[in-house]
Write a protein that binds this DNA or RNA. Structure first.
Lengths: 109, 109
DNA sequence: TACCTATATAACCACATAATCATATAGTCA
DNA sequence: TGACTATATGATTATGTGGTTATATAGGTA
């Protein structure tokens, strides 16, 4: 199964997608969008970052199709393109938890 | 559920883990290790990269507990620490496939 | 028209890091 | 011991990119 997943043609694409997710602010944005669509302004307030920075990350997320964009009136409403990304985060959290647990056991002997 | 996963304390850890996976050569290494433990030399040959480069990436993967290391004789045998990482790749591939399919549909009308 | 708000973008800086080269370390075997 | 192999590491370079500032664009409203 992994061999199918990681064949040479897909390898770069997969790596790119991981790299996109490897920025805390972008994860925070996606986390906000998990609760529903949000405007840029709302995301700026929620994350505490600057408007150009949030906007740029949204552009990146959009370019890689991790979010969708809908312009209504004066605002741009962003939403998660594929909720499956959250499964990723859960698996990663599971990974980390197991790592830490193992580390703890190794420490405690 | 996503809120639990992406709480502020874990956000940086999760992002880091994604960033570790966001390098093609590291994915290629993990892909090789999916078939079983490998020495550094074997990974150098399989990937076509240089020995110091492979060794450095293995050190990174080890530091973040994505691989395990066992020294036997003159060689170091690396193996995957947590097979769950391959689930990540499958999900990402699913994401990408759906994106491309959507793009294709949008193009074909 | 003019003014306000929301969003995007261009220019720039600073930093992280992937890759390379050279070298060091460590184990094996004669 | 010395010679060989395998692996790790330090120094260096080059490149990518996250963040900031300033500005541009566009829609709404008077």
């Amino acid at each position: 199964m992994p061999k199918t997943v990681l064949n040479p043609q897909n390898l770069a694409s997969v790596a790119t997608r991981f790299r996109i997710l490897g920025v805390p602010l972008r994860l925070e944005i996606l986390n906000q969008l998990a609760e529903g669509e949000r405007t840029v302004t709302a995301l700026v307030e929620a994350t505490g970052s600057t408007q150009p920075n949030v906007s740029k990350h949204l552009t990146t997320l959009l370019a890689h199709r991790l979010v969708k964009r809908e312009k209504r009136g004066n605002s741009a409403y962003y939403s998660v393109a594929d909720p499956a990304v959250f499964e990723l985060c859960e698996i990663v959290c599971g990974n980390i938890e197991r790592s830490l647990e193992e580390e703890r056991r190794a420490f405690s002997g």
